[in-house]
């Protein structure tokens, strides 16, 4: 399978702020690619460059092997779902979904709108106004509008972040199912690791305008390339002693050459995460089957760790100490 999307040395600055710094990326056909990063790291800017709303200062964008860098958004045949859905408020649901078909002069509008409405369970609300439907329904309408015309690929800018927690979980699994059904390429931007873990075939972590690591989510957790990734990915930041990083479950409590003073115990389902401080002030979080009281001293050994280097070499996992 060829590359669906390729970014070649993209840079973008707003004034003196460099938002994207010489970034390159390849996304494969049919892949669900997640762009993960804290807010304000240029995730949305990246999508806007791909879709053509923003122009890169330098670099090229290829879609299906074709250089589209200078093409306007309406000539790129991409679909995008914005964070706030950007539904046309003066049109009802039906006309919102039909709009891209009309713009592309595609025939059988009525049949296609109804098909996609049935697929996304919004047939009942087709004649409703945008402000008469719920947030979850708005998200479906925005998705329907995106998939109705069979674009080359899909770009989604945090489409789940405006939903209530309960709706968000169902929407997440529906989205994954939809992508597999369509067998289309999705580029999905989020700051939520759980979404990245659940949805992404590959996850690219954006930091300081570049992808600091691109891999599947499991590797981000187990083999973070940098201390920053280790800190950002996971429920708890990675523990670091002398440039060696280890996850809470990679240490064994009871005996060993390290010790810490417990500050609190946090219960997560049937295990506990023990937060504590070592003598030199380093914060440590360990996984434990039982809780410890505040002030207790816990000894532990590290069974597995990865070494962070100053250089860009990939870190290697060891399994002994």
């Amino acid at each position: 399978m060829g590359n669906k999307l390729e970014l070649r040395n993209i840079s973008k600055s707003y004034g003196r702020t460099k938002v994207i710094d010489n970034m390159s990326l390849e996304v494969e056909e049919g892949e669900f690619f997640v762009v993960l990063g804290p807010s304000g790291t240029g995730k949305s800017t990246l999508l806007k460059i791909i879709v053509g709303i923003e122009q890169p200062d330098s670099g090229k964008v290829f879609i299906d092997g074709r250089d589209v860098t200078r093409l306007p958004p309406n000539k790129r045949n991409l679909a995008m779902v914005f964070q706030n859905y950007a539904l046309y408020p003066n049109m009802n649901v039906y006309n919102n979904i039909a709009f891209p078909l009309k713009m592309h002069r595609i025939r059988y509008i009525d049949r296609k709108v109804k098909e996609v409405a049935a697929k996304l369970n919004i047939t009942e609300i087709l004649q409703k106004k945008i402000y008469q439907i719920s947030g979850g329904q708005q998200q479906r309408v925005a998705l329907a509008r995106a998939i109705v015309r069979n674009p080359s690929m899909f770009l989604l800018d945090e489409p789940l972040s405006n939903l209530d927690a309960r709706v968000r979980y169902t929407a997440r699994s529906e989205l994954k199912k939809l992508q597999q059904e369509l067998n289309q390429t999705f580029v999905f931007v989020t700051h939520d690791q759980k979404e990245a873990e659940a949805l992404g075939d590959r996850v690219g972590v954006l930091h300081n305008g570049v992808f600091e690591q691109v891999s599947d989510y499991k590797d981000l957790y187990e083999k973070p390339k940098t201390a920053w990734i280790g800190d950002f990915v996971g429920d708890f930041p990675i523990n670091i002693i002398d440039n060696k990083g280890f996850r809470p479950e990679w240490a064994k409590i009871g005996s060993g050459k390290f010790s810490m003073t417990v500050s609190l115990s946090e219960s997560v389902s049937d295990v506990y995460f023990i937060h504590g401080l070592m003598d030199d002030g380093t914060g440590i979080i360990l996984k434990s089957p039982k809780p410890f009281g505040s002030g207790e001293v816990v000894h532990f050994s590290v069974e597995k760790f990865i070494e962070f280097k100053e250089a860009e070499n990939p870190p290697q996992a060891f399994s002994s100490v």
């Binding site: 879709v51 053509g52 309406n74 045949n77 991409l78 679909a79 950007a86 046309y88 509008r145 015309r149």
Partner: peptide, 22 residues
């Protein structure tokens, strides 16, 4: 909202279509 303009362009509307129809 500015985003509606962007959305219209992504949905395939040209510059003048966006200006007059959206």
């Amino acid at each position: 909202p500015k985003q509606l303009e962007s959305q219209a362009r992504v949905d395939g509307a040209g510059f003048f279509q966006t200006l007059y129809q959206v």
